[in-house]
Computed example of a mutant assay.
Amino acid sequence: MRQIVYTSVRRTLLDDAALIALRRLAERRNARLGVTGLLVYDGQRFIQALEGEAEALATLMTAILHDARHEAVEIRVNRAIARAEFGDWSMNFRHACNSADAGRLVATVKADVARVSDSHLQAAFIGFAVLGSRR
Rank of each mutant, 00 (worst) to 15 (best):
S119V: 09
G52S: 09
C97I: 12
L39M: 04
V113E: 12
T7Y: 01
R29F: 03
G127S: 11
A18T: 13
A72W: 00
S117D: 13
F46T: 09
A96Y: 01
Y6I: 07
F128V: 02
C97G: 09
R10P: 02
Y6P: 10
Q48W: 04
A129W: 02
A107C: 12
R10Y: 01
T62N: 05
A72Y: 00
E71L: 08
L33M: 00
D101Q: 13
H66K: 09
T36R: 12
R2P: 00
I126E: 02
H70G: 12
A123M: 07
H66I: 03
R79N: 08
A63E: 12
S8T: 09
A80L: 10
I20A: 14
S8H: 01
A84Y: 07
Q3T: 11
R10H: 14
I47H: 09
A129N: 02
A111Y: 05
R2L: 15
A100N: 06
R28H: 08
E85P: 01
Y41W: 03
R45V: 02
T108E: 11
A124S: 08
T108G: 09
M91L: 14
A49Y: 14
N30S: 07
W89H: 10
A58Q: 11
I81V: 12
D112I: 00
D67M: 05
V9W: 03
R134K: 00
R76P: 10
L19F: 08
A21L: 15
A58H: 07
D118S: 14
N78D: 15
L50I: 02
V130G: 01
A82W: 15
R135M: 10
L65A: 11
R104T: 13
R134W: 05
S133Y: 02
V109H: 06
R69P: 11
R83N: 15
M1P: 01
F128Q: 00
H95R: 12
A100G: 05
I75F: 13
G52M: 07
N30L: 08
R23Y: 11
G87C: 08
